[in-house]
Design a protein around this nucleic acid. Structure first.
Length: 268
DNA sequence: ATGGTCGCTAAGCGA
């Protein structure tokens, strides 16, 4: 059966505060599935109604008060929902579900990897140690994935030189240190997963999904990083038609500091 | 080299 499906991943930095631009995004780009991170919303307060009104009848959430939280909203049913804990922290940073595509299904993992604090030394910075441990657990769990699978989310690492505005200036900045970038690649290769964004954008071209709130003019300064990712298992790669970073959304009213990334899948 | 801005939830922490 031929099929076409689009999904988006977006660190929304408070889903309740951001509902106006979530609605704007859905109306403009019409994704079939929307994976959100940093919902910062207890499950009891999640804005189900406006999403259902926009056609997202299937909504699965893994939230907590104040911090973190992920949600996957879909026009298609979501089955075998799984919310995995990492590092025994009680953090809400993952949700997986099966999504129908063509004659079968793929497993869609929605991740929010710890940011890792400021100091790039796991010995003196517990948050950075936690980030590295989280990657270890991701690899132990996702290594050798056989089912058609997609990993999306805010992975909080910009692994390649052109994934940041200045490779040299960010070598000691958490998100681009050699230590975590190497670990990141090991996790991806253990899948194995294909870095789909870089399949569409050459390695020598800048590619960002996040721009700090602290810049006076984020777009003019353009000091971005590619913190959000789309990985697919090799058997899914031929189905990926297109990936777009919706940079415009970073400039909308009361924006998230992350831009959404849309992926289009198609099969014959 | 430093500080710059957000969002939580009610002063400071996390990003």
């Amino acid at each position: 059966m031929s099929d076409r499906l689009s999904f988006a991943t977006w660190n929304i930095n408070s889903v309740r505060l951001r509902m106006p631009i979530v609605e704007q995004f859905i109306e403009t780009y019409q994704p079939d599935v929307l994976c959100l991170q940093e919902t910062k919303c207890p499950d009891a307060n999640f804005p189900f109604a406006p999403l259902r009104k926009l056609g997202f009848e299937h909504i699965e959430i893994n939230g907590q008060k104040g911090y973190h939280g992920v949600a996957t909203a879909s026009r298609r049913p979501l089955s075998n929902v799984e919310k995995r804990g990492f590092c025994d922290m009680g953090d809400s940073r993952h949700l997986a579900a099966d999504v129908s595509f063509g004659d079968g299904y793929f497993r869609l993992h929605n991740f929010y990897v710890p940011a890792g604090g400021d100091e790039p030394d796991p010995v003196i910075n517990d948050k950075f140690a936690h980030k590295l441990k989280f990657l270890d657990e991701m690899q132990a769990w996702l290594g050798g994935t056989e089912a058609p699978s997609i990993v999306v989310g805010d992975l909080n690492i910009a692994p390649y030189e052109e994934d940041v505005w200045s490779h040299k200036k960010l070598l000691k900045v958490v998100s681009h240190t050699p230590l975590e970038c190497e670990r990141f690649e090991q996790v991806r290769e253990s899948g194995p997963f294909v870095d789909m964004m870089r399949r569409f954008v050459p390695m020598d071209e800048k590619l960002y999904t996040w721009w700090s709130y602290r810049a006076k003019d984020w777009s003019a300064a353009d000091k971005g990083r590619r913190l959000d990712h789309v990985w697919v298992t090799p058997q899914m790669e031929p189905s990926v038609r297109e990936i777009r970073v919706i940079r415009d959304a970073r400039g909308w009213e009361r924006p998230s500091d992350h831009a959404p990334v849309i992926t289009v899948l198609e099969c014959e």
